[in-house]
């Protein structure tokens, strides 16, 4: 067990290091001189050269990587070129939008998908199951930005229940802030819920076919009790795995939805930073998201192993 844990952790760290190398390399070959970008079009060649030296851009590649990685580890993320404030402050502000958004979307997804999956599994082959799974198929196929547009016109423009976009900040009360996260969360949750409902259903069906469930039923336990007490608990493993992966996906996958609703979240920050070539912000946010994905995967891996000891031996 310990060996397995250690190996998983070592792999996670190795992946993180490799990822940092990739990010560094990609940004290294990006056209455009950061010093020139900072100084603007009218700067002289000497000024640019001076800043390059000052920024350490003329150091050897390896030295620069080590310096950069060291800064990342100590959370010294540098200053944004466009906002001229520390990147860490920017990221902190934006996480306060993206994290709640991802969590709300995840909760919505689970609240919708698990009952639907349960219902479908218990009514397998019936009209209700077909309808639910048909709906899930459509849910997976709808582009979320298109769905978001429909939601905006229905709930914000026509019914005027929620704002069409923007974010008032947590400082102005919890309710207004939550209200403005509602539509984006729904838009994000729909395809995730569709996937999750399908996974829940097939996991349950697999479990229901296991011998011990049959035994339980044979002993005369009511179907409902079997479903709730035995089947659901066992089927939760794959469901939780998918939820974990979805959380990682949602944290980064909000990029387009945050643009549609112009929410000041991480996705929008990184999108704007890319278009404005604010590479210091891009690399920091990408590394942060990569670290989050790796961390979530690690947690999922470990919890999986704890729940199901058989897996420890296997890859």
């Amino acid at each position: 067990m310990t060996a397995y844990l250690l190996k998983r952790i070592a792999i996670a760290i190795a992946t993180l290091v490799l990822a940092s190398l990739v990010v560094f390399a990609v940004l290294e070959i990006v056209p455009g001189d950061p010093a020139r970008l900072m100084l603007g079009m009218n700067a002289s060649a000497e000024q640019v050269e001076q800043l390059r030296t000052q920024m350490g851009l003329n150091d050897p590649l390896l030295l620069r990587y080590l310096h950069w990685a060291g800064d990342l580890l100590t959370l010294d993320l540098g200053r944004s070129l466009t906002y001229s404030v520390p990147v860490l402050d920017l990221v902190r502000e934006r996480v306060a939008v993206s994290l709640p958004l991802a969590l709300i979307a995840l909760a919505l997804s689970a609240v919708i998908a698990i009952p639907v999956g349960l219902y479908s599994a218990s009514r397998r082959g019936h009209a209700g199951d077909t309808l639910a799974m048909g709906a899930a198929q459509i849910g997976v196929a709808i582009p979320n930005f298109w769905f978001a547009l429909m939601l905006i016109y229905l709930f914000a423009v026509w019914l005027r229940l929620v704002p069409a976009g923007g974010f008032p900040g947590w400082g102005n009360g919890i309710w207004p802030a939550l209200k403005s996260l509602l539509l984006p969360a729904v838009a994000l949750a729909l395809p995730q819920a569709a996937i999750l409902a399908r996974v829940t259903r097939s996991a349950l069906i697999d479990v229901l076919n296991e011998d011990y469930i049959r035994t339980a039923r044979a002993k005369g336990l009511p179907y409902r009790a079997v479903l709730w007490q035995h089947a659901l608990r066992n089927a939760m493993i794959p469901v939780l795995t998918i939820l974990g992966l979805q959380f990682a996906f949602l944290l980064a996958g909000t990029i387009i939805i945050e643009n549609v609703f112009y929410l000041p979240g991480l996705g929008r920050l990184v999108f704007q930073a890319i278009t404005q070539r604010d590479l210091i912000v891009v690399e920091s946010v990408v590394m942060l998201l990569v670290a989050a994905v790796i961390a979530v995967n690690l947690i999922v891996d470990l919890s999986y192993a704890i729940v199901d000891p058989r897996l420890r031996g296997r890859e």
């Binding site: 914000a156 005027r160 069409a164 923007g166 609703f261 112009y262």
Partner: peptide
């Protein structure tokens, strides 16, 4: 002064009264 990046977002922002 609210930052509304494009016309696509501006139209619903106006229509909804935001």
């Amino acid at each position: 002064f609210r930052i509304v990046p494009d016309a696509a977002a501006a139209v619903p922002a106006l229509l909804s009264g935001d």
